[in-house]
Design a protein around this nucleic acid. Structure first.
Lengths: 320, 320
DNA sequence: ACCCTGTATGTTCATTTGTTCATAGTAACT
DNA sequence: AGTTACTATGAACAAATGAACATACAGGGT
């Protein structure tokens, strides 16, 4: 079915209000075909069903976190519906609106990858800017067949800002520091890493240290290695670099085998924007905050509460 | 059901993809309530279903008409679906996009009323402009209980352009020229009529002379009077002023009893924008074109063909 | 030419949805 | 307080829709 017909069917259904049966008779096909056509019209974006609602930050939580950690910007999306995908969608939407405000022509934007970043990517819309460069902050090639979504996320950002992409088609963690050196020796990789260092804006998700994380599933660790990492107090990661609850890199050897921007460099960014959704990430976020690896935080109501709550009850900073 | 709940239900249904039954259980109400809530959400604009498609003018028809009548702008919307309301919607959308291009700050926009204008009004969206004045071109109070939609149309234009409204809350046709004088004597009415004369842009539908027209139904004529009007060769009206196929006012006494801008003044407008949808309006449109009462025409494919076709076949200019 | 594979269409059935009707609750007015 | 009119709700039914299955058709390969 060509898109001209799809359009016609969609209009008859949604605008005129005919039933599928009526359209089927008129078009002399079976009703099932109309049903499928309508499906296709939605998938192809001819029909767009969108829900309008103001997305305001939950102010009192925003303020509390902003002040406690001296951040530049905190956005706490209200939880309208308790579904992780939906919450991520809203957080992504909020971040997008923020980006529209802060991104200027000729900016360099660094991005990582992961589930949360993918949710952001889906919320991006076309923005009028010129001369933007979007650069990956860390390697995005998985070790096992489990693909990371790094390239599609990069593409989404590139499209939205009419930007030039700088990808990092290398593993994010390798076997030895020597391999890091060799890979970084490649001029294209070196240039990309350099650009990442110089990006004015960095955007990344905060990962939770757990065997459910993509990083583990991507095959970068054996179960034993990961267990050891957890024993060393790892609570979360940013750009594949693991830190403990105090925000300290918890395995220097691992860190030296990681390809991508170092966390210390994030501290110098004008906009170091971290995203994190899920109350189980409270510890990870606190670690990141302690480390000072962000100055902007985008999260949701539930997670924000978890962060503050953990603080209040939590004198157990030391015990992983 | 408050709009907070509506939003939640709408998101669960359209974004999460739950069935109404599932939502009903979760919210502990009957499924019927959810069904109704979803209805309400659409009606209130929380859920917006819109169909995206490029709306380009049918170029070869556009050109033919433009050249034949020496117009400034002609837009012929393709007929995707042969439903009058839908076609009017598209024509309205096309006009809106044109207005966005031509309307400047501090402009004065004159508008009439009627079915076609109502369709335009529905397509208007917020536009950033300042100092706009929107003025009614002709009286908008019906004689019988049949209400004209003049005020809601004016309101829609006013909102879209953040404009100041100048309404003409008087009948469009009265019993005698003396009454016209008396009414026009009122300072507010006089000022409004004066403003209408000075509007840079005028927008109006071309009406068909027929007993189905709102003008007749509004009770401005007895059946006998209307019959006589038709016998005098009336083919259509603009701002309640009737003309024949050659574009001549066909009843001067009637015209002198009509309140609103005179058709000769339309000839001097920078933008005299006429809208007309429906192949049965071909004669009316041709009359208007012969009279030179417009320099921009917004219509649809079928009607455009009817206009051109009538010309070719039509040597019957004289016979009403 | 034949077979195979993948896609598109129609038929049928199960599910989902819209609507009607009866009822209960609620607010305004006497 | 009682009455009335209106709205909101749930139950039940009828209609509309989605999905599984079966069939036909087209293109690519041998």
């Amino acid at each position: 079915m060509d898109s001209k017909n799809l359009l016609k069917i969609a209009r008859l259904y949604y605008e005129v209000g005919l039933t599928q049966e009526q359209i089927a008779q008129q078009e002399k096909v079976s009703r099932a075909t109309i049903s499928r056509a309508l499906d296709a019209a939605v998938k192809q974006g001819i029909v767009e069903i969108k829900i309008r609602y103001p997305l305001n930050s939950v102010e009192y939580l925003e303020e509390k976190i902003t002040k406690k950690y001296g951040l530049k910007k905190v956005f706490v999306v209200p939880v309208i519906v308790p579904y992780p995908e939906i919450i991520k969608k809203d957080v992504g939407g909020a971040l997008f609106r923020f980006l529209v405000q802060i991104v200027r022509d000729n900016d360099v934007i660094g991005i990582s990858w992961g589930m949360t970043m993918a949710a952001v990517a889906e919320q991006l819309e076309k923005v009028e800017r010129t001369g933007i460069k979007v650069v990956q902050l860390n390697g995005g090639i998985g070790k096992s067949c489990f693909a990371t979504n790094a390239s599609s996320i990069l593409e989404a950002f590139t499209n939205a800002f009419s930007a030039v992409p700088y990808s990092l088609p290398v593993p994010t963690i390798v076997d030895s520091p020597e391999i890091v050196k060799v890979i970084s020796g490649d001029s294209r990789i070196r240039d990309t890493l350099e650009l990442a260092k110089n990006s004015r804006i960095a955007i990344y998700g905060i990962g939770k240290a757990s065997t459910n994380s993509i990083l583990f599933k991507s095959g970068y660790f054996t179960p034993d290695e990961y267990e050891e990492l957890l024993n060393k107090g790892a609570v979360g990661d940013i750009c594949s670099r693991y830190f403990n609850i105090r925000g300290e890199i918890c395995d220097n050897y691992l860190d030296s085998r990681t390809i991508g921007i170092s966390l210390d460099l994030l501290k110098e960014k004008e906009y170091a924007i971290a995203l994190a959704v899920g109350e189980d990430k409270a510890k990870s976020i606190i670690g990141a905050l302690q480390g000072g690896y962000l100055n902007c935080l985008f999260t949701d109501e539930i997670t924000a509460n978890a962060i503050l709550h953990y603080q209040e009850g939590g004198l157990n900073y030391e015990s992983s």
